[in-house]
Design a protein around this nucleic acid. Structure first.
Lengths: 132, 132
DNA sequence: TATTGTTATACTCTATAACTATA
DNA sequence: TATAGTTATAGAGTATAACAATA
């Protein structure tokens, strides 16, 4: 099967499987980790800003944050300036777990791309295809 | 976002969007077309063999074939040798539509990979990551 | 007993619309 | 009026289990 859709779909599925397995001991999956990484970088974000940054629907981010909050990784705080907004921040446990899980993710990605002569170029090409 | 999962997910989403739009006039989506391509290549296949070839679950292929059969692209015939097996074949209309849609798909993929210096290498790298 | 295909069910991810509370 | 977040709902896509027909 030479089809681009088939190839991308199954490459993504394989990566997702490996990430899920490797991150499970930390109570996270790849999606959770992406949410944490959006929160940890830079100034505090509202839920809507997190959703935009991850390019997911704002109705999806609520459930994701519910799970992360139950497990003690994030907290939601009503913004004093605009009480409609929920500012999302990492807890101390969230920071610690994130740091560990990020190392795992980088290691998984490194191994995953190991068959390629130039993994960095492959990643750059994906970015190029997204127009970014 | 440098994350491999994010990049693959959104590159796939963009390709899927473009394929869906381009194939819609022919009554097909990218998934349908993949099913047709599995059927058209080589000797007649049973539903189970189609599922294996596409690496989808055998319970998923039934619905896909229902849709393709309703639209007159494929026919299911009880195999005389083994009456448990449904042999799936393209109708004449299926052959014609497939040939046209395949040209569209190739053109879409060519345009999609146009930003890359070497689209063929990119595709080969995806295959390499699948171990094939 | 094992296999092919079907049906029922469920789970995840995604998307839309309607609702609330705030602005 | 518009925005942030929530809730309900529905649609894909996928997976498991149980079943009927057949081997």
């Amino acid at each position: 099967m030479d089809r681009l859709g088939y190839l991308l779909k199954h490459v993504l599925a394989r990566l997702t499987d490996e990430q899920t397995k490797a991150l499970a001991p930390y109570g996270l999956n790849g999606r959770d980790l992406a949410v944490l990484s959006a929160i940890v970088a830079g100034e505090p974000l509202s839920q809507l800003e997190v959703a935009h940054r991850l390019r997911v629907d704002r109705t999806s981010i609520g459930d994701l944050l519910d799970g992360l909050e139950e497990r003690g990784f994030v907290e939601r705080r009503r913004s004093p300036e605009d009480r409609r907004r929920n500012v999302v921040v990492l807890t101390e446990q969230g920071e610690t777990t994130f740091a560990t899980a990020e190392r795992i993710r980088l290691e998984i990605e490194r191994e995953f791309l190991a068959p390629l002569a130039d993994g960095a170029r492959f990643r750059d090409e994906l970015k190029l295809l997204l127009g970014e």
